[in-house]
Simulated assay, not measured.
Amino acid sequence: MNKKGHVLNAILLALGLGVILTIDPRTFEPTTDSAFLLVQKIGQLSLPVVLGALFPDVDTAFGKHRKTLHNLPVLIAFLVFPLVFDNLHFVWIGVATHYVLDMVGSKRGIALFYPLSPQEYDLPTGVATSSKYADAVTLLVTGAELGVLAGIHYYLFSLDVSLADAAASFTAIL
Rank of each mutant, 00 (worst) to 15 (best):
G5D: 06
K67F: 13
A35Y: 10
L13N: 05
P118R: 04
P124C: 10
A136L: 11
V74H: 10
L47A: 13
D57W: 04
G16K: 03
P30F: 07
S131Y: 02
I76G: 10
L88E: 10
I110R: 01
D165Y: 11
F55T: 02
A77K: 05
L139M: 08
V80R: 05
L47S: 10
K107S: 12
G52E: 04
A134T: 03
K67T: 13
A134P: 03
N71W: 03
L83A: 08
I11Y: 11
L112P: 00
L79W: 06
H65F: 11
P115N: 05
D122E: 15
A144N: 12
S131I: 06
T129S: 15
K132C: 14
F36T: 15
G18P: 08
G94S: 02
T60C: 14
Q44H: 13
F90A: 14
G109R: 06
H153L: 05
Q40T: 14
A172S: 14
L112Y: 05
L149K: 01
P82M: 03
K67E: 15
I152S: 00
I173G: 13
F85I: 09
E29T: 14
G143Q: 00
T97E: 01
T32E: 06
D33N: 13
L140K: 04
N9K: 08
G16Q: 01
S130W: 15
S106D: 06
T32I: 11
A167V: 01
V39E: 10
L12Y: 06
G43I: 07
Y99G: 07
R26A: 15
L13I: 05
Q44T: 13
A168H: 14
I20W: 03
G143W: 02
D165G: 09
I152C: 05
F85G: 02
K132W: 15
P25C: 02
Q40I: 12
G63R: 07
V95W: 07
I76P: 07
R108N: 09
V127P: 07
D165I: 11
F28E: 13
S46N: 09
V39Q: 12
G18S: 10
K132D: 15
A168L: 13
Y114C: 06
G52P: 00
A111S: 02
S106C: 11
L54K: 11
M103T: 04
A77M: 02
S106R: 04
I76H: 06
V49M: 01
F55S: 08
L69A: 11
V49Q: 01
S46M: 13
I23T: 05
D165C: 08
V148G: 02
A14H: 01
A144K: 10
D57G: 03
T138I: 09
D86I: 14
I76C: 12
T171F: 15
V95E: 04
D57H: 02
I42S: 01
V19W: 12
L17M: 10
T31H: 03
K132I: 15
Q119D: 14
L69G: 11
V91K: 04
L72Q: 08
E29Y: 12
L12W: 06
N71L: 01
F81C: 00
K67C: 14
I76Y: 08
S158E: 13
H98M: 08
A111M: 00
